[in-house]
């Protein structure tokens, strides 16, 4: 006999393409959800629609605006769908290490929270999918000439297309769902992506070479509709903020180690590790920088780019002292 006074919790629906048990999905389930549910004294219950049953990230954006779902967990390119300025973080060779990422997260957190708010989202957690690497079924990708020959399957959008162009590589435009068939079939022979993706899509038996250079940083964020967040009791918000750093640290440990595990597993499975010569690497990084300028004023403001580069510069100077 349920008591008549028992209050039904408010249900927040979350959608993610991450499957339930692994990677980002696991972190959402075991760390984020309990934090919000307990933090709200169970007045909020989170129902997650895992594994893309609600469609892809572009659909989540529309569904959030229509109010069908209240939150989402997304990574990589999808983060730029919700907040185009996030592409500044995903520029090729912007970050060299996790220390740099962590520093920017600390000093520019507020900037990115404000940007998300501009589009109607609360940046509930800012985590990492990892760093993306070069993978190929055909070319070692250890010289710049090899990049000229490779056919890169690409669905990552304008920045990646531009970057590949500057390398002289041929981007093969593929739909997200068709990327894997295209690689298996051989229409495309190379790609930039996280190790996690190569494992999850079973591309690793096909992959012959890995160039494990950190091509680009790939964030994983959890967003809540701003209206829902604002309507939340201040007590619950405060409690959530108190835990936030802890939650993110826990998720970060999980996700970063997951990605490293995947990369090691791919190499152990038989993919050959390849490296550019230091001169070639320098040339490539210089070329990549032209994309940073190219998209300033298009995807993000010039000021944001200057601010980010300024922070990175001072961090590097401080560290090298």
């Amino acid at each position: 006999h349920a008591a008549a006074t028992e209050v039904k919790p408010e249900i927040w629906k979350f959608a993610t393409i991450a499957p339930k048990g692994i990677g980002l999905g696991n972190s959402i389930r075991s760390i984020l959800i309990p934090a919000i549910e307990e933090g709200s004294e169970h007045t909020i219950q989170i129902d997650v629609y895992w594994g893309g049953v609600m469609g892809d990230e572009a659909d989540y954006q529309q569904k959030m605006r229509l109010g069908q779902i209240q939150g989402t967990g997304i990574s990589g390119m999808a983060a730029t769908i919700f907040c185009p300025e996030m592409s500044i973080l995903e520029l090729p060779f912007m970050f060299k290490s996790w220390e740099e990422v962590d520093y920017i997260k600390k000093v520019m957190r507020e900037d990115f929270e404000k940007l998300h708010e501009k589009y109607g989202y609360k940046l509930a957690a800012w985590n990492d999918q990892g760093f993306d690497q070069f993978y190929s079924t055909k070319y070692a990708l250890d010289t710049l000439e090899q990049f000229g020959k490779a056919k890169f399957g690409s669905w990552y959008g304008k920045v990646e297309e531009k970057f590949l162009e500057t390398l002289g590589a041929n981007p093969i435009p593929v739909g997200v769902a068709e990327a894997v068939p295209a690689m298996r079939q051989g229409v495309a022979d190379s790609m930039i992506g996280p190790a996690f993706y190569i494992v999850a899509t079973q591309m690793y038996p096909e992959v012959k070479y890995v160039n494990p250079i950190n091509v680009r940083y790939s964030p994983a964020v959890i967003l809540i509709g701003l209206d829902r967040w604002n309507a939340l009791d201040d007590r619950y918000k405060k409690r959530f903020f108190e835990q936030q750093a802890d939650i993110e640290a826990k998720i970060a440990i999980n996700l970063r180690s997951d990605n490293d595990k995947c990369l090691n597993a791919i190499i152990k499975y038989g993919a050959k590790e390849s490296h550019l010569s230091p001169e070639n690497e320098k040339v490539m990084k210089e070329k990549a920088k032209t994309t940073w300028d190219y998209f300033a004023g298009k995807l993000y403001s010039r000021e944001l780019l200057d601010k980010l580069l300024g922070h990175l510069d001072s961090f590097r100077k401080e560290r090298d002292k």
């Binding site: 056919k151 690409s154 669905w155 959008g157 304008k158 297309e161 041929n170 981007p171 093969i172 435009p173 593929v174 739909g175």
Partner: peptide, 8 residues
């Protein structure tokens, strides 16, 4: 050896 994203 050319590919264009806008085609898709």
């Amino acid at each position: 050896d050319q590919g264009y994203m806008w085609v898709d």
